[in-house]
């Protein structure tokens, strides 16, 4: 078990909960941990921070019994951490466009830092419904050059008015983008997949599904033939090609029945 070291309010719904965990601090961008909130739930979360001193974090929006409890976490609370698990994002010198919506910014923050460190060109689009829904604007501003950070809000209360996909599409057309990385609402990610494949740009997305084991046993987290816990949570265009009837369309509930994403 790990102890919560701090809980930081990020915006009106999202909190970042910090803890010390040596194994997680050796994670790579896009990897996730199974977080256990004793008495409530165990659920997968992308690591939003990890440093060489062992300080790690997950960034949580309340949506179920476990995450609902976790946003209320206080310094000293016990939580269980298993992992890090899963296939990370590709980190190389390709010209990168990162597009995130909501808590989807969580895995993109360590990715942006790693890509900049690698020496590639990195642009970031942060999307949100409205200004108070934006996440990690400050952190991303510290991670990438000011001129490479773009904000969109659906209602136009801040940054560009419109969807992050619209801005991303025009950027893909105007700039040399080597690879699109995304995490956020699946419908947004599917749209970006279609745009990227049409434009001949590489594509990687971090998806989310209900998980029980996190280690390739239970089969709850399938997207087509992919087991998200092992083949993902980052899937590339090749992985997704045979799963387009599910990606951005359908997911399975805890019983295995299809429901809309």
């Amino acid at each position: 078990m790990r102890r919560v070291t701090k809980n930081v309010r990020e915006n009106r719904t999202i909190n970042t909960v910090y803890f010390n965990d040596e194994e997680s601090s050796r994670a790579r961008p896009g990897q996730f941990v199974m977080v256990w909130e004793p008495g409530y739930d165990e659920f997968p979360m992308s690591l939003s921070n990890y440093d060489s001193k062992g300080l790690c974090s997950v960034t949580v929006k309340p949506w179920g019994p476990g995450s609902g409890e976790m946003v209320k976490a206080r310094r000293g609370d016990l939580i269980g951490i298993r992992g890090p698990y899963g296939r990370p994002f590709t980190v190389d010198k390709s010209s990168a466009l990162l597009v995130g919506g909501g808590t989807g910014l969580a895995p993109l923050l360590p990715l942006a830092k790693a890509l900049v460190k690698e020496g590639g060109r990195v642009a970031v689009v942060i999307g949100g419904r409205s200004k108070p829904d934006l996440l990690f604007e400050e952190q991303m501003r510290r991670a990438v050059r000011r001129k490479n950070l773009f904000i969109t809000t659906d209602d136009g209360t801040y940054g560009h008015k419109g969807f992050p996909t619209d801005l991303a599409e025009s950027m893909i057309k105007e700039r040399r983008v080597g690879r699109v990385y995304t995490c956020g609402p699946e419908i947004m990610m599917r749209k970006l997949y279609d745009i990227s494949v049409t434009a001949g740009v590489e594509f990687e997305a971090s998806l989310e599904r209900g998980m029980k084991c996190g280690i390739g046993i239970c089969g709850s987290c399938t997207v087509g033939k992919n087991l998200l816990c092992r083949d993902g949570a980052v899937l590339d265009a090749k992985d997704l090609k045979d799963s387009l009837d599910e990606f951005g369309v359908l997911q399975r509930d805890q019983s295995g029945r299809y429901i809309k994403v």
Binding site: E42, G80, K212, S255
Partner: peptide, 20 residues
């Protein structure tokens, strides 16, 4: 249809087993 139990539903035990 059955949703099953709430997580944790699986745990690795120290004797090399998987408990579910």
């Amino acid at each position: 249809p059955r949703e099953g139990y709430r997580n944790p539903t699986l745990v690795a035990t120290q004797d090399g087993g998987l408990l579910n």
